[in-house]
Design a protein around this nucleic acid. Structure first.
Lengths: 179, 179
DNA sequence: AGCAGATTGTTCAAGCTTGAACCTGAAGGA
DNA sequence: TCCTTCAGGTTCAAGCTTGAACAATCTGCT
């Protein structure tokens, strides 16, 4: 509502804070901070906005939808759980929980991989396929409304570049530090 | 790791799906879909990446940090909970829970607003201030590493435009539908 | 005054996510 | 063969978020 583009974070503590880190921290410029705060707000609010539409109309979370949609595009509508997890960049634990719930709702089936008993594959059922097909138009409309429509082609281009840059940096992160 | 820029969602179901929605859905073009999938991946992974850094180094979630940082920038390091909630675009319920935990850790204090007993204000304690000051450099470094560094000034500019556009669209959303 | 309704904030149950522990099956040595 | 290690997958406890219900305060209307 009346929430302005206020600063969410990153006070410049340079005055009170003097040399406790190895290198002097490089604070964000105003230009950089504005972009980061806007992105932070997007990160906080867009997932719940899309969740809300899917939950209201199809009783699915956004993550549920990605799982079903991923399967719907796989050959035979079937995928190994480990492949699906890396496809979705999520933990196997999270996927296992979600898949169990979706299976209980009859939207997919889990079976041992016939090629190697060590893997488990998930297969979309007809009910699952029908649900994805029914949910897709509303979801696309929400994505268009919140994100795509109203942007120019070049803005969309830069959005892709920037988002790919961020996800690449995250996937390259050390992942192991002093602890 | 070996996660490619695979398609997370939005199969074109146009073949199997024929006229069940009021208007024919406008599917995303390849160009639009690439940008959306990249943004979706960012949305899923950036919050946990920033959480991980703050949790590891300062035992704070990103949201905790925003709460403390918001207070640190307020006059008197004090704010009404309702103002803080709209500042952070979060529910009062969520803020109430987080503030309770932060108070138990001695990082802030809750007191009735002296100007009107109807409000509650949260004030950063010295320990809370010290923690924000200690956490800020590492957090800024992570934001730089994952997002800002490596982008050109004009990419940063477009990022801000796009993110502001999305958050504006979300805040303008009807919010009330058939249910 | 008095009453309806909105706003502020808390609490509780239900659901989801995370990380650790665990089990199974496969691969690699010695 | 035996032992170790690792990858795939599940489960459980702990923590967080959400939404509804509630109490308290304020505002506006008559």
């Amino acid at each position: 509502m009346n929430l302005k583009e206020t600063s969410l974070t990153l006070v410049n503590h340079a005055d009170t804070y003097a040399c406790a880190m190895p290198d002097e921290p490089r604070w964000l410029t105003d230009h950089e901070r504005d972009a980061w705060l806007a992105l932070a707000k997007l990160m906080f609010n867009l997932p719940s906005a899309l969740d809300a539409q899917l939950l209201r109309d199809n009783h699915l979370t956004l993550f549920d939808y990605f799982v079903l949609s991923g399967l719907s595009m796989a050959p035979g509508r079937t995928m190994r759980l480990s492949d699906l997890a890396s496809h979705l960049s999520c933990s196997l634990s999270r996927l296992s929980n979600v898949v169990k719930r979706l299976e209980q709702r009859g939207l997919l089936r889990r079976t041992p991989d016939p090629e190697s008993p060590r893997y488990t594959v998930a297969s979309l059922t007809d009910a699952g396929w029908d649900l994805v097909v029914a949910a897709a138009p509303g979801h696309v409309a929400a994505v268009r409304d919140y994100v795509i429509d109203g942007l120019t082609a070049s803005q969309i281009d830069v959005l892709r570049e920037v988002a790919c840059h961020v996800t690449r940096k995250i996937s390259e992160a050390p992942e192991a530090s002093t602890r």
